[in-house]
């Protein structure tokens, strides 16, 4: 049933949010720490468990995959509600800091990724 997939996904997301908030409180931080990561781990574990028991139905998969395919439209809606005006208005300091940070971060990804060291990378 499709609702089983949606329910499983919602359950994992809620438990993740709860655990993430608890971790935040535990280490004294006003933020959710790793909530989405915990939820993802739960969902992956649930998928393996259901697969072993032979209970991973097409409907259940469909309930989850619908939302994973809605991801890009949701990101577009997210982009449409960013405070772009503030980013533009911030002036030269914001422009320099933001651009510099992003440029250096991209370079860091390349260094840390060590292109040749990753076996999956195309040459």
């Amino acid at each position: 049933m499709i609702i089983q997939g949606v329910a499983l996904l919602a359950f994992c997301t809620l438990v993740g949010a709860y655990v993430g908030d608890l971790i935040g409180i535990l280490i004294g931080v006003k933020a959710n720490v790793g909530g989405v990561g915990v939820a993802m781990a739960l969902l992956i574990a649930a998928r393996y468990a259901l697969m072993k028991q032979g209970r991973l139905s097409e409907g259940l998969k469909g309930g989850v995959s619908f939302w994973s395919m809605m991801y890009i439209p949701i990101v577009v809606a997210m982009a449409a509600q960013q405070n772009v005006v503030a980013a533009v208005r911030g002036g030269p300091m914001v422009l320099i800091a933001g651009t510099l940070v992003v440029a250096v971060s991209f370079a860091l990804v390349r260094v840390l990724g060590g292109r040749s060291a990753s076996p999956g990378a195309g040459s």
Binding site: A17, M40, L43
Partner: peptide
């Protein structure tokens, strides 16, 4: 957003 991100983990 989080709901859909978690879904991609499947």
């Amino acid at each position: 957003r989080d709901f859909a991100i978690v879904a991609t983990a499947f």
